[in-house]
Design a protein around this nucleic acid. Structure first.
Lengths: 252, 252
DNA sequence: CGGGCTTTTGACGCCCATCAACGAGTGTGG
DNA sequence: CCACACTCGTTGATGGGCGTCAAAAGCCCG
C-alpha cells in the first residue's frame, strides 16, 4: 500500500505538543502514535486576537481548525444584512466542517478573545485516513456529532421559550467547560449578551432580563461576564421545559 | 490491497436498477461502475406505508437509508413529550447521518406516504471507500451538506418571521422537487399543516392563515395539499425578508 | 478623561400562540 | 352504500411573551 507523502516537520510536532488534537482524538480510540502523525500535518498560526476573522464566508475551504486556547464564534450572514450566530467554539472543538461540501466557507469565524488555533489541512487529513486506522471513522463521527448538535439547536429554537433557551445555553456551556477540566459552576463567558441573544434567537434585552430573573430566583450569580451557577439541577429542569409543570401533557 | 468481502448478489443489483443511489451519487463524480458496486450492498426493503416507522429514537445505528420513492419525516422527541420535526425527506435524499456518532438513532423517521427506501449498511459502505476512489470524500460531503442545511434552518428559526418561514419552506420544496425533474411550481405536499408548522416552529393556525394570505396576494394557489406557485420571485423576495423593505437597515 | 459600547430596566405594542368553533375530507364498519 | 367518527384545515377572538424603543448607568479603551 503506497503511503502518500505527508508534510512531516519535526519542529512543528514539537511546537504542537499541547495541541488540542490529542484532547480531541485520544478519547476516540486513536493511539498516541497516531496523534503524533496527526500533529505532523498541523500548521500553527500565530495567536489571534479579539475581533480577528479566522475565515470569511466565501473563502475557499482548505482546512479544518481546532481551537487550542481561547474561544470564537461562527456566524452566517442573513440576506437582510444581519447575521445569525451559529455557535461558540471552545478549546478542543473543530470548526469548518460545514464547508467541506461546497468547498467554500459559508459562514464567518470570529475570535472572541485572544486564542490560538490549529489549522489542519483537510486534504492531508483525508490522506492520513489511509494509514491511520480509525481516523476515517473518527471524521465521520465528528461530522455526525455536529449534525446532532445542530439538531439540538433546532429543537431549542423551534420549541423552547426564552427562559428554557438561556437555561439550556448555560447548561451546555457548563458541560463543555467541565469536559475541559474547568469548573462547571463558575466561569466567564467570552461572548456578549448581544451574541448570546443572537445565538438563541432572542433580543439582548430579553437575555439580560432573564439573567436577572435567574439571579432573583437564586439559580445563579451574575456579574457581567462572570457566571456562578448555584443550582445546576433546577437549571436542567428549566431547560427541559419542566419549569412550571405538575403533570402536564405534551405540547407538540 | 486486500479487498473486503462484499455482499454481492446479482439479483439484488438488478432489483435495484432504479435505486436512487445513482441519482444521488452520479452527479458527485462516481462512475456508473462504482454505483453498481454501491448498489450491490443495498438491501431492499418492502414498500413502507403511511405511519410506518423506518427507525426509532434509541434504535441501534446500522444503516443509512436512501429514499427511492415517496417521502418521510424525521423528528426528535422533546423532553416535555412533544416532538420537533427535523426534516422532510424526498427521493434521492439520505437519512440517518446524525446517528453515526452515537451509534444510536436519536430521532424517529416516519413514512408520510407509501414509499420505498434503500437500506445501506454503513459498515459495508465505509469498507467500500477502500476500493471506490472518491466515495470517502463523497460521504464527507454528504455529511457536510447536512450540516449546511441545518445551518439554514437555524437562521430560519432564529431570525425569520412566520411569513418568511413559510415562503422559505415552499421555495425549498420547489427546488428539491425541480432537482428531481418535477414541476417546481405545481406539486402536492405529503405532510400536514401540523407537520409543516412543527417543522417551522409555528402553530398550525398560523401556517393556515399565511397560506390564505399568500393566496389572497396571488402568490400561489392552495387547495389542501395541492400547491401551485404563481410567483416564485416574489416568494423568494419574501423568504429573504425583503418583503416590506424599501432601504432597510440590517437587523442583527 | 471622554466617547463608545455593553448591560440593565421600564413602557409599550405587535406578532403569533392559544382557545374555540365549524366545515370538509377520509376511513371504517354495519 | 350510507352513517358515523375522526382527523384535517380554516377562521375568528383573545391574550401573552417577547421584540422594540428609550434612557440611564457602568465599563473599557484610547
Amino acid at each position: 500500500m503506497s503511503q502518500p507523502t505527508i508534510i512531516s516537520i519535526e519542529t512543528m510536532r514539537v511546537a504542537c505538543k499541547s495541541c488540542s488534537l490529542s484532547t480531541l482524538c485520544l478519547p476516540m480510540g486513536l493511539c498516541p502514535q497516531d496523534v503524533e502523525r496527526l500533529e505532523d500535518i498541523v500548521k500553527h498560526a500565530r495567536p489571534l486576537h479579539r475581533g480577528d476573522l479566522l475565515f470569511r464566508s466565501g473563502d475557499r475551504f482548505r482546512s479544518l481548525y481546532v481551537v487550542k486556547t481561547g474561544s470564537l464564534k461562527s456566524f452566517a450572514p442573513s440576506p437582510e444584512g444581519g447575521e445569525q450566530v451559529l455557535g461558540f467554539h471552545l478549546p478542543g472543538e473543530v470548526i469548518g466542517l460545514d464547508a467541506i461540501d461546497r468547498r467554500t466557507h459559508s459562514c464567518f469565524a470570529k475570535v472572541l478573545e485572544t486564542s490560538s488555533i490549529c489549522e489542519v489541512p483537510f486534504q492531508l487529513l483525508t490522506q492520513l485516513t489511509a494509514i491511520i486506522p480509525g481516523l476515517q471513522h473518527h471524521l465521520y463521527r465528528l461530522l455526525s456529532k455536529e449534525i446532532g448538535h445542530d439538531t439540538d439547536m433546532l429543537l431549542l429554537l423551534g420549541k423552547k421559550n426564552a427562559e428554557e433557551r438561556l437555561a439550556a445555553f448555560l447548561l451546555d456551556m457548563s458541560k463543555r467547560l467541565q469536559r475541559r477540566g474547568l469548573s462547571p459552576t463558575d466561569f466567564y463567558l467570552s461572548m456578549s449578551r448581544h451574541e448570546i441573544g443572537n445565538y438563541l434567537g432572542l433580543a439582548v434585552e430579553t437575555v439580560s432580563r432573564i439573567f436577572t430573573r435567574f439571579q432573583d430566583d437564586r439559580l445563579l450569580g451574575v456579574e457581567r461576564k462572570h457566571i456562578e451557577i448555584f443550582d445546576l439541577d433546577a437549571l436542567a429542569t428549566l431547560a427541559d421545559g419542566m419549569g412550571t409543570m405538575r403533570q402536564q401533557q405534551q405540547r407538540t
